Simulated scan of single mutants.
Amino acid sequence: MSQQPYEPRGHGGPPPPGAAPYAKTRPPRPPASADLRLLLRLTVASFGVAVLGGAVGYLAAPEQYSGLPASAAFGTIVLVISLLFGFGLTAGLYALVYFPLREQRQWAWILGIVFASMALLTTLANAVLVLAGPFDASLGLATGALKAVVDVAWLVVAARPGVRAVLR
Protein backbone atom coordinates (compact mmCIF):
# COMPACT_ATOMS: atom_id res chain seq x y z
CA MET A 1 0.00 0.00 0.00
CA SER A 2 1.33 3.37 -0.98
CA GLN A 3 1.57 6.29 1.40
CA GLN A 4 0.78 8.81 -1.36
CA PRO A 5 -2.35 10.71 -0.29
CA TYR A 6 -3.85 11.16 -3.77
CA GLU A 7 -3.01 7.88 -5.41
CA PRO A 8 -6.21 6.17 -6.54
CA ARG A 9 -6.83 2.90 -4.78
CA GLY A 10 -8.92 -0.02 -5.94
CA HIS A 11 -11.49 0.39 -3.18
CA GLY A 12 -12.07 4.10 -3.40
CA GLY A 13 -10.13 6.75 -1.62
CA PRO A 14 -9.70 10.42 -2.27
CA PRO A 15 -10.09 11.68 -5.81
CA PRO A 16 -6.98 12.64 -7.78
CA PRO A 17 -6.06 16.32 -7.76
CA GLY A 18 -8.31 18.41 -9.99
CA ALA A 19 -11.07 15.80 -10.19
CA ALA A 20 -14.53 16.53 -8.90
CA PRO A 21 -15.31 14.51 -5.78
CA TYR A 22 -17.68 11.63 -6.32
CA ALA A 23 -17.77 12.23 -10.06
CA LYS A 24 -18.50 9.21 -12.19
CA THR A 25 -16.89 9.09 -15.54
CA ARG A 26 -19.30 8.14 -18.28
CA PRO A 27 -18.40 7.39 -21.83
CA PRO A 28 -19.53 10.11 -24.20
CA ARG A 29 -22.94 9.57 -25.73
CA PRO A 30 -23.25 9.07 -29.45
CA PRO A 31 -25.11 11.93 -31.11
CA ALA A 32 -28.87 11.55 -31.20
CA SER A 33 -30.02 9.97 -34.42
CA ALA A 34 -32.85 11.27 -36.57
CA ASP A 35 -34.91 8.28 -35.46
CA LEU A 36 -34.45 9.17 -31.79
CA ARG A 37 -35.45 12.78 -32.45
CA LEU A 38 -38.55 11.52 -34.28
CA LEU A 39 -39.32 9.25 -31.33
CA LEU A 40 -39.10 12.20 -28.95
CA ARG A 41 -41.46 14.23 -31.17
CA LEU A 42 -43.88 11.30 -31.27
CA THR A 43 -43.75 11.13 -27.47
CA VAL A 44 -44.81 14.78 -27.26
CA ALA A 45 -47.49 14.22 -29.91
CA SER A 46 -48.82 11.21 -28.00
CA PHE A 47 -49.01 13.31 -24.84
CA GLY A 48 -50.89 16.04 -26.69
CA VAL A 49 -53.38 13.56 -28.14
CA ALA A 50 -53.84 11.92 -24.73
CA VAL A 51 -54.62 15.30 -23.14
CA LEU A 52 -56.96 16.16 -26.02
CA GLY A 53 -58.72 12.82 -25.67
CA GLY A 54 -59.09 13.29 -21.93
CA ALA A 55 -60.51 16.78 -22.39
CA VAL A 56 -62.93 15.58 -25.05
CA GLY A 57 -63.98 12.71 -22.82
CA TYR A 58 -64.78 15.02 -19.93
CA LEU A 59 -66.47 17.70 -22.02
CA ALA A 60 -68.46 15.43 -24.35
CA ALA A 61 -70.10 13.30 -21.66
CA PRO A 62 -71.50 15.60 -18.97
CA GLU A 63 -74.30 13.13 -18.21
CA GLN A 64 -71.85 10.83 -16.47
CA TYR A 65 -71.36 13.45 -13.78
CA SER A 66 -75.06 13.75 -12.97
CA GLY A 67 -74.61 11.24 -10.14
CA LEU A 68 -72.26 13.54 -8.24
CA PRO A 69 -73.42 14.91 -4.86
CA ALA A 70 -76.37 17.29 -4.79
CA SER A 71 -74.33 20.47 -4.47
CA ALA A 72 -73.38 21.69 -7.94
CA ALA A 73 -70.39 23.59 -6.57
CA PHE A 74 -69.06 20.49 -4.83
CA GLY A 75 -69.58 18.45 -7.99
CA THR A 76 -67.66 21.03 -10.01
CA ILE A 77 -64.82 21.03 -7.51
CA VAL A 78 -64.61 17.24 -7.60
CA LEU A 79 -64.62 17.32 -11.41
CA VAL A 80 -61.86 19.94 -11.60
CA ILE A 81 -59.71 18.11 -9.05
CA SER A 82 -60.11 14.82 -10.91
CA LEU A 83 -59.24 16.55 -14.20
CA LEU A 84 -56.11 18.09 -12.74
CA PHE A 85 -55.07 14.84 -11.09
CA GLY A 86 -55.61 12.88 -14.29
CA PHE A 87 -53.71 15.35 -16.45
CA GLY A 88 -50.92 15.60 -13.87
CA LEU A 89 -50.58 11.82 -13.73
CA THR A 90 -50.53 11.65 -17.52
CA ALA A 91 -47.88 14.37 -17.70
CA GLY A 92 -45.78 12.58 -15.09
CA LEU A 93 -45.88 9.28 -16.97
CA TYR A 94 -44.93 10.92 -20.25
CA ALA A 95 -42.14 12.85 -18.52
CA LEU A 96 -40.89 9.55 -17.08
CA VAL A 97 -40.32 8.40 -20.66
CA TYR A 98 -39.44 11.65 -22.47
CA PHE A 99 -36.65 13.10 -20.33
CA PRO A 100 -34.62 9.91 -19.78
CA LEU A 101 -35.14 9.01 -23.44
CA ARG A 102 -33.73 12.40 -24.36
CA GLU A 103 -30.72 11.48 -22.22
CA GLN A 104 -30.52 8.24 -24.24
CA ARG A 105 -31.33 5.86 -21.41
CA GLN A 106 -32.30 2.39 -22.58
CA TRP A 107 -34.67 1.78 -19.68
CA ALA A 108 -36.80 4.73 -20.84
CA TRP A 109 -37.04 3.15 -24.28
CA ILE A 110 -38.27 -0.10 -22.72
CA LEU A 111 -40.71 1.78 -20.48
CA GLY A 112 -41.97 3.70 -23.50
CA ILE A 113 -42.62 0.46 -25.36
CA VAL A 114 -44.57 -0.88 -22.38
CA PHE A 115 -46.60 2.33 -22.01
CA ALA A 116 -47.31 2.63 -25.76
CA SER A 117 -48.42 -1.01 -25.92
CA MET A 118 -50.68 -0.58 -22.91
CA ALA A 119 -52.13 2.64 -24.33
CA LEU A 120 -52.78 0.97 -27.67
CA LEU A 121 -54.54 -1.99 -26.04
CA THR A 122 -56.59 0.35 -23.83
CA THR A 123 -57.57 2.49 -26.81
CA LEU A 124 -58.70 -0.57 -28.75
CA ALA A 125 -60.68 -1.88 -25.77
CA ASN A 126 -62.35 1.52 -25.33
CA ALA A 127 -63.25 1.59 -29.02
CA VAL A 128 -64.91 -1.82 -28.73
CA LEU A 129 -66.86 -0.68 -25.66
CA VAL A 130 -67.93 2.57 -27.33
CA LEU A 131 -69.07 0.77 -30.47
CA ALA A 132 -71.01 -1.75 -28.39
CA GLY A 133 -72.67 0.97 -26.30
CA PRO A 134 -75.97 2.67 -27.08
CA PHE A 135 -74.58 6.20 -27.12
CA ASP A 136 -72.94 8.32 -29.81
CA ALA A 137 -69.28 9.02 -29.13
CA SER A 138 -67.93 9.80 -32.59
CA LEU A 139 -65.66 12.56 -31.26
CA GLY A 140 -64.22 10.15 -28.70
CA LEU A 141 -63.66 7.58 -31.43
CA ALA A 142 -61.84 10.18 -33.54
CA THR A 143 -59.42 11.09 -30.76
CA GLY A 144 -59.02 7.41 -29.92
CA ALA A 145 -58.16 6.60 -33.53
CA LEU A 146 -55.64 9.44 -33.61
CA LYS A 147 -54.10 8.16 -30.36
CA ALA A 148 -53.88 4.64 -31.80
CA VAL A 149 -52.14 5.94 -34.93
CA VAL A 150 -49.59 7.88 -32.87
CA ASP A 151 -48.95 4.92 -30.56
CA VAL A 152 -48.44 2.54 -33.49
CA ALA A 153 -46.08 5.06 -35.10
CA TRP A 154 -44.18 5.33 -31.79
CA LEU A 155 -43.78 1.56 -31.61
CA VAL A 156 -42.66 1.35 -35.24
CA VAL A 157 -40.05 4.09 -34.80
CA ALA A 158 -38.91 2.59 -31.48
CA ALA A 159 -38.18 -0.68 -33.26
CA ARG A 160 -35.83 0.95 -35.77
CA PRO A 161 -32.15 0.06 -35.44
CA GLY A 162 -31.17 3.75 -35.39
CA VAL A 163 -32.95 4.24 -32.08
CA ARG A 164 -31.45 1.21 -30.41
CA ALA A 165 -27.94 2.11 -31.61
CA VAL A 166 -27.80 5.39 -29.68
CA LEU A 167 -29.20 4.04 -26.40
CA ARG A 168 -26.88 2.89 -23.66
Rank of each mutant, 00 (worst) to 15 (best):
R102D: 03
L141Y: 11
V149E: 06
V157E: 10
A91K: 09
G162I: 05
G140Y: 02
A125E: 01
Y22V: 00
P31G: 00
A45L: 15
A158F: 09
Y98W: 15
E7M: 13
L42I: 01
R41I: 01
Y94P: 01
R26F: 09
G140S: 12
P28Q: 03
E7T: 11
A119W: 00
S46C: 04
R160C: 03
L139K: 08
A119L: 07
A45W: 13
A142I: 15
T90R: 15
V156D: 09
S2T: 15
R164T: 14
A60G: 01
A127I: 09
P28V: 07
P21A: 13
D35M: 04
V166H: 13
P30S: 08
P69Y: 08
A50D: 04
G67K: 03
P21R: 14
G57D: 09
L121Y: 02
S71V: 01
P31E: 08
W154R: 10
P30L: 04
V49A: 12
A32T: 06
V97I: 15
G92L: 15
A159K: 09
P62T: 06
F135N: 03
Q4N: 15
I110T: 13
L131M: 13
A132V: 06
P17S: 07
G53M: 05
L79N: 07
L146D: 08
F99L: 15
G162F: 03
L131S: 13
T123V: 08
G75E: 00
Y6E: 11
V51G: 06
G86A: 14
L93W: 15
I113L: 12
R9C: 06
W154L: 01
A153K: 07
G12I: 08
R29N: 11
R160L: 13
P5T: 14
I110L: 09
P31A: 07
S138P: 02
L121D: 03
V163N: 08
L89H: 06
V156G: 04
Y94N: 02
L139G: 14
G57H: 06
L120I: 00
T122Y: 05
G112M: 10
V163Y: 13
Y98A: 04
H11T: 09
A132L: 07
A116Y: 11
L131Y: 08
A119H: 04
P17I: 10
F135I: 03
V78F: 10
A20S: 10
A125H: 04
L129P: 01
R105E: 12
V163A: 08
G144L: 14
G144E: 07
P62H: 03
V44E: 10
L131T: 06
G162L: 10
V56Q: 04
V150T: 12
V78N: 02
F85D: 02
G57E: 05
M1V: 15
V149F: 12
L40W: 10
Y98S: 04
K147M: 12
V80W: 14
A72F: 06
A20G: 08
D35L: 05
L139S: 13
